[in-house]
Simulated scan of single mutants.
Amino acid sequence: MTLRVERLTFGYPDKPVLRSVNTGDLPVGRLTALLGPNAAGKSTFFRCVAGLQQPQAGQVLLAGNDLHAATRAELIRDVCYMPQSFSSNAALTVFEVVLLARKQLQDWRVHDDDVSAVSHLLLRFGIQHLAERYIAELSGGQQQMVALCQAMVRRGRLFLLDEPTSALDLRHQLEVMQTLREITREREAVTIAAMHDLNLAARFADHILLMEEGRVVASGATDDVLCSSELARTYGVDIELQRSRDGVYMVGARI
């Protein structure tokens, strides 16, 4: 199974946003980082792929099937989207909101495997101690961790995560990205995470999509894209690459 986006186009009458986006094949079991400067079209790309906005043209092919021809139920089943911002004043606990996410489009009876799945995921992301806390009581970073669990607790085939580490401190960023990569491989899913931190992408991504002004200008293995001239040109900075002792690129930039 692969994800392939072909000629995806979206815009407003006076403002094109996505300009014939092509990704190439994104294989299962691999974590893809979606990079690009602000206003490159990353969030709109996610919403169009997830079926939340209707593109003017193009296809989104998951295992050869066009998601834009899928029913709403099929989209919710197969595509798990975590938006960039998350906040809630609902009078629900962390455990309850993650459980509700898992039960989407299923019967609402809670089974032992549902409770086990939620408990396991909270433990895996290190927030099991928040299970009985109310969402409204949490910090922004804690709420972001809950939103991640809401996305990953589902049995989808495609996970779209819009800046999943933006509100987290350094340690939690590393832990979350490591966990996302492990889960992606275990489930043989396609996971795309939009991010701004090039060093996180260098350490954890298997593949990179680089966007600029509504187009994918580079797509390929992480090392290949990091070493390409497109990266520096897209961000408008000079890029310096060094290898760490464990062989991972470290990205430095200067104006």
Rank of each mutant, 00 (worst) to 15 (best):
M1T: 03
L3F: 02
R4Q: 13
L8F: 07
T9C: 11
T9W: 13
T9R: 13
F10M: 09
P13E: 12
P16W: 06
R19T: 02
V28L: 04
G29T: 01
G29Y: 05
R30Y: 03
R30I: 02
A33I: 10
G36P: 05
P37F: 01
A39E: 06
F45R: 04
F45P: 08
F46Q: 05
R47V: 00
R47E: 04
C48F: 00
Q56R: 15
Q56V: 07
G58F: 06
A63E: 03
A63G: 15
N65I: 01
L67V: 05
A69V: 04
R72P: 00
E74V: 02
L75K: 07
L75G: 01
L75D: 00
Q84C: 06
S85E: 14
F86L: 08
S87V: 12
S87T: 15
A91H: 11
A91M: 12
A91L: 15
T93V: 02
V94P: 01
V97G: 08
L100A: 15
A101I: 08
A101W: 07
W108Y: 04
V110F: 06
D112T: 14
S116F: 13
V118Q: 03
S119C: 10
L122I: 14
L122G: 07
L123D: 13
L123G: 14
R124S: 12
G126A: 12
H129W: 08
H129N: 10
E132Q: 14
Y134K: 11
E137G: 09
L138I: 01
L138R: 07
S139C: 10
S139Y: 03
S139D: 10
G140M: 09
M145E: 05
Q150N: 04
A151N: 00
L158G: 00
L160S: 03
L161I: 09
D162I: 11
D162F: 11
T165M: 08
S166W: 11
S166N: 06
L168A: 04
L170I: 12
Q173R: 12
L180F: 07
E182C: 06
T184C: 15
T191D: 06
T191W: 03
I192E: 04
M195P: 04
D197T: 00
N199Q: 03
N199Y: 06
A201P: 01
R203N: 02
R203K: 13
R203Y: 03
R203F: 02
H207K: 05
L209D: 00
E213H: 14
E213T: 03
E213M: 11
T222C: 12
D223P: 01
C227M: 14
S229W: 06
S229H: 13
L231R: 12
E240Q: 15
D246P: 06
V251P: 12
G252L: 15
G252V: 09
R254Y: 02
